[in-house]
Amino acid sequence: MKIILAGDSTVAACPSYEYPMSGWGPALPPFVYRWAAVHNLAKGGASTESFREEGLWDAALALAGAGDAVVLQFGHNDQKREHLAPRAGYAANLRRMVGEVRGRSAGPVLCTPVERRQFAGGRPEPTLGEYPAAVRELGAELGVGVIDLNAWTRSLYGELGEDGSVRLFTHLARGEHHHWADGLEDNTHFSVEGAERVARHVAERLAPLVREPEAARG
């Protein structure tokens, strides 16, 4: 089967010149290779609207067939556009996407957007407003499986603490890496380690939502 990923930079394969920054999508194949092939169409800066406008959604649907899974994770860039409010344009776009995936006899899976790393008083703070809640509500309304990455990532940051969670993100000292000669402190985009942690969780949650081949279960 195919797992087709549609999302933003937190899912996408980052350009080589941005390494070691990474979305979780490129880290997913090793966790699912026994039963699925991953096709990652996620793109940096994408919203539920621009993903369609740029033709990426048509490409995702063209790949999808019976028994495949189309995994949707948006929100970071929708949040920047007033008309893509959680229970307005954002939810409407996701609802339409779910219907079109089902029209291809494929299985839609919704992900709440991964949380940014932001602490206050030693605790991770929510930064994505009502977008995660809108995804959960839509999943319940449409009978679609939801992987709650927002709640899970925020819990993970809390477990690791303000200092320990740094390693999940692209934090580099000046001169540490030639791609980021001036250094970088990015609390939105994952490091390779962070991407792998999220990808492993996605694989674990995704398997029960799709028809994993019996042969792959060992």
Rank of each mutant, 00 (worst) to 15 (best):
A46F: 06
V98W: 04
Y90F: 15
Q73L: 10
W57Y: 07
H39A: 12
N77E: 02
V98Y: 03
A92I: 01
E53Y: 04
P29H: 09
V32R: 05
E82L: 12
G99A: 14
D68W: 12
G23V: 00
Y33L: 13
P30H: 11
A66Q: 15
F51D: 00
E49Y: 09
A85W: 13
F31S: 02
A91E: 14
K43Y: 10
A66Y: 14
L41D: 00
P26R: 07
R96K: 14
A91W: 13
W57G: 06
H76W: 02
A85K: 12
L94N: 03
D78T: 08
L28I: 03
F51Q: 05
N40A: 06
A62P: 07
L61C: 09
T48D: 01
N40I: 05
N93H: 14
R102W: 08
T48G: 10
R96Q: 15
R34E: 15
N77V: 02
A88M: 12
V70Y: 13
E49G: 01
E49R: 15
E100K: 10
F31N: 03
A66D: 15
S50K: 01
Y33W: 14
E82H: 14
R95I: 04
T48M: 05
N40L: 05
M97I: 08
G75E: 11
A46R: 07
G55K: 05
P26C: 09
H39M: 06
L28D: 00
H83P: 01
V32W: 07
G89A: 11
R96C: 13
L84P: 06
Q79A: 15
L94S: 03
W57R: 04
Y33Q: 15
G55R: 01
R52A: 03
G44E: 02
G99L: 09
A36I: 12
G75V: 04
L28R: 02
N77D: 08
W57M: 07
L72Y: 12
A69Y: 08
R96M: 12
R52Q: 07
G44F: 01
A46N: 02
A36P: 00
N40C: 02
P30T: 11
V98Q: 09
G65C: 09
Q73G: 02
A37P: 00
D68R: 11
V38I: 05
L28F: 02
A59N: 04
Q79W: 10
L41V: 08
D58E: 13
F74W: 09
R96I: 00
D68Y: 12
A60T: 01
R102I: 01
W24M: 08
P30C: 06
R95P: 00
A85I: 02
